[in-house]
């Protein structure tokens, strides 16, 4: 017994034309090759959330119907409370439509964020068994919650029509607004997925953060009607959810929109994915440890 085999023969074989060059295993892959690898396995981020959604309500009586009933209840409760019981106006022509669009879009980002915050910690078994780009896990959260949101969106649009709105050319802009929200959600998901691994308390903090954000996003009231100062109104444009909701209301309800709000949305939907990816990618390798 001795150490002859390891160092002696090892150093001699290092340079003679290997089949493929050796790569550094201790550094992380470049952003480009990382994204390429993730894209190659994109089916994971589609099939897995679909399975999870299916598994979610398996033990309930209504089963898969819950994916429709749940958003219907969400919209229905607001319809009942603010449309039938308390008939509010508050400086908005179609307050009910106004409310429902706001609630549904706000809810989407909230669900995506909450789900993504545990996407890494909940999948430790998978992470420790298989090498794959971890970005697929928060991506699966985003896709799953977005898919689950489609019925709610459909119901919101029905509610808007039911409250007397007619489709206009502005409605064609809605997909762009939703795409911007998707990009923003994706970036947020990456960020919270990363933070959630070192600070599991995030799961407890997020609901409160969203409750606060709820009031700052003009979901249940018109900021324009309540905030007199133009400077303060401009400050609301810093809130990405306010931007999304206000732009969507412009599309569907013809509510006024400030240019600052549009600029805010465009900025957020570019900056947030960039921040999220940067944070996630630079600590990717430590996520499993």
């Amino acid at each position: 017994m001795s150490t002859e085999a390891v160092d002696g023969s090892g150093s001699s074989s290092s340079e003679d034309a290997p089949v493929r060059p050796l790569i550094d295993l201790t550094s992380r892959p470049t952003a480009r090759s990382y994204l390429r690898e993730a894209w190659r396995r994109r089916e994971f981020a589609i099939v897995v959330p679909a399975q999870d959604l299916r598994a979610q309500n398996m033990d309930t009586t209504l089963g898969q119907l819950w994916h429709l009933v749940n958003p219907a209840l969400l919209v229905g409760v607001y319809f009942l409370v603010f449309g039938v019981i308390i008939d509010t106006r508050r400086g908005v022509d179609n307050f009910l439509g106004f409310l429902i669009v706001g609630v549904v879009l706000f809810h989407l980002t909230q669900r995506v964020t909450l789900e993504a915050s545990t996407s890494i910690t909940q999948n430790m078994g998978l992470i420790r068994s298989i090498q794959f780009p971890r970005i697929l896990l928060p991506a699966a959260s985003v896709n799953g919650q977005t898919a689950a949101f489609v019925p709610a969106l459909a119901l919101a649009i029905l509610a808007v029509l039911a409250t007397g709105e007619l489709p206009t050319l502005r409605w064609l802009v809605l997909p762009a607004v939703l795409a911007a929200q998707f990009a923003f959600n994706f970036g947020t998901a990456l960020l919270v997925a990363r933070i959630g691994t070192t600070l599991p308390d995030l799961r407890q903090i997020l609901p409160h953060l969203f409750r606060l954000l709820f009031y700052g996003s003009g979901v249940i009231f018109s900021v324009d009607a309540f905030v007199q100062s133009a400077a303060w109104r401009r400050a609301f444009a810093l809130n990405p959810l306010y931007d999304v909701i206000t732009c969507a209301r412009w599309c569907l309800l013809g509510e006024p929109v400030d240019l600052w709000v549009v600029a805010g949305l465009v900025t957020w939907c570019i900056v947030m994915p960039a921040i999220g990816f940067w944070v996630f990618h630079r600590s990717e390798q430590r996520l499993g440890a």
């Binding site: 190659r40 994971f44 897995v48 298989i130 794959f132």
Partner: peptide
Amino acid sequence: LIGGLALGFT
């Protein structure tokens, strides 16, 4: 299925 997709199978 989940593991296979993570490995890069379709």
